[in-house]
Structures are given as C-alpha cells and as structure tokens.
Amino acid sequence: MAEGSRFSIGRTILLLVWGLFCLLPVIFFATIALRPRNEIIAPKPIYFPTISVETWAKIWAEWPIMHYFMNSVIAVSGSVLICLVLGIPAAYSLARYQYKGREDIGFYILSTKMMAPAAVAIPIFFLFRAMGLLDTVWALMLVYAAMNLSIVVWIIRSYMIDIPHEIEDAARTDGASDLRILWSIIIPMCLPGIITAAVIAAIFAMNEYLFTLIIATKNAYPLSVALANFSGGSDGIIYNAIALVAFLAFFPALLLVILIQNHLSRGLTMGAVKG
C-alpha cells in the first residue's frame, strides 16, 4: 500500500473530525435518555448531567412503550414478509426469463420508488378509512410493504442474475420444475441477497414517518411516530422519553446492519453497485 500524503496527519484529522461530528450527538442523545427532566432544558446546557436509570421507570410507567415497540415489530416484520412473498417470484421472473415487456415491467416496479409519499398520502388515507383500517397495524404493514417492494425486487433480482445458469440447466435436465428450481436452488443460492433486501426493507419501514403519521392516531403508534407524541402539556416535549425510544429502535437496526455490512452498498443502490 502506497504511503505518503494519503496517510498524512491532515487526513487523519479530517476523518477524526467527521467521526466526532457523527459520534458526539449520539453520545449526547444517549445522556438525554438517562437524565432527569429538569436537566434537559436548562438556562445553560448541562454537559455532565446526573445519570440515573430511575427516569426510565417513570417513562416506562407513563407511556406504553412496549405496546409501541410491538406495533413496530408487527408492522415491520409483516411488511417484510409480504415483500418477500411477492418480491422473490417477481425477481426470479425478471432475472431469469425472456419475455415481451420484461424491461418495462422492471422499470415500472423501480419507478414506484420515486413516488413522493406526500403525493399519495391523501388517497391512501381515504382508502384505509373506507376499509376501516385507520389506526391499525395492518394498514401500516400494507403501506410499508408497498413502499419497499420495489427495493426488494431489485436487490434480489441483482443477486439472482449472478447465479450461473449451468446449475439450473442440470437440474432441469433431471426433470425439476421451474418452481422446484426456484425453491431448492435459486433461493438458497441468493440467500445473502434476500437477507440484505429484508434488512434494508425492515430499516426503511421502521423509519417511515409521513404515512405512519396519517394512519396511526393512537392505538397503532409504532416507535417512529410514538415519539412525536411525547409532549405533555406544561412539560413541553419530553426529550428523555424520545431519546429512550430512539435507542430502542437504534440497537436492532445496528445489529441488522452489522449482519449485512458487506452487502450494504449493493442493497442501498437496489443492486446497482456491487460492493
């Protein structure tokens, strides 16, 4: 590896500065989750607060945080399941068959990623109202699935394209059906791609804010919108509860991302960049 200017002190300082810019707010946020309410909004910011886990008990008693957490888990995992059930066959079709309109179908699926959530928010609201699904996790699940389906199809498609045809051809001459090949050969071989797609879809679903805000009004609050509700009259915004919930969502996301870290760039570009 070439030494010299690339490994100079200036370079290290730049990286450290950005690293600190990333880390310090995170650390500050963590201390917010641990400090009593009167030390959050003070005339002068308090950088070394009295740390106490006791505030957690208060937050826990005051808000049904476990309920919100479970709403998130159900809506997110359900949406990922829908995405995989619909997305894997679609990806297989786009990756492995030659047929008329294939490119257009693939592009149509991709283009749904470009839809601005705000532009479809009003019709979606009336749709779920008509179906009686407002303020249910089912509505959230359906919306998250719709939002992520394009990503899931394109990521998995990119991994399927990479599988050599020879293996399938051999299985086919042995008399295996196309669905059999998909199930027993293709799916196991592109499992990293499927996991990557699932993780990215899960994180995006966990993050969703606009649709969630208009669909969930109380009972169905998942974490992303529940925290917008932590403001109680004279107390103003209850930042330690917000920080606590933020970290409750952060740690699962961190674990999932570490699991797929070598596939992250490929997942984030919907398969276009092979990292």
Binding site: L23, F28, F29, I32, I40, N207, Y239, A243, A246
Partner: peptide, 28 residues
C-alpha cells in the same frame, strides 16, 4: 470508520429531527 460514520443513519429520521431540534432550539 464505516461503522462509526454510518451510526447516524441507523436512527429513525423523526428521532434525529428531535435530536437536532434539541441541539439547535430547545437545549440551546
């Protein structure tokens, strides 16, 4: 470096919005 740099991305955008609201406005 990559793990450190990607940490902010793992928070929910609504949580990040509150974090910076606190840093800029309410917490000064």
């Amino acid at each position: 470096w990559r793990i450190v740099f990607l940490l902010p991305m793992l928070f929910m955008p609504s949580a990040v919005a509150y974090l910076w609201k606190l840093l800029f406005n309410d917490g000064r």
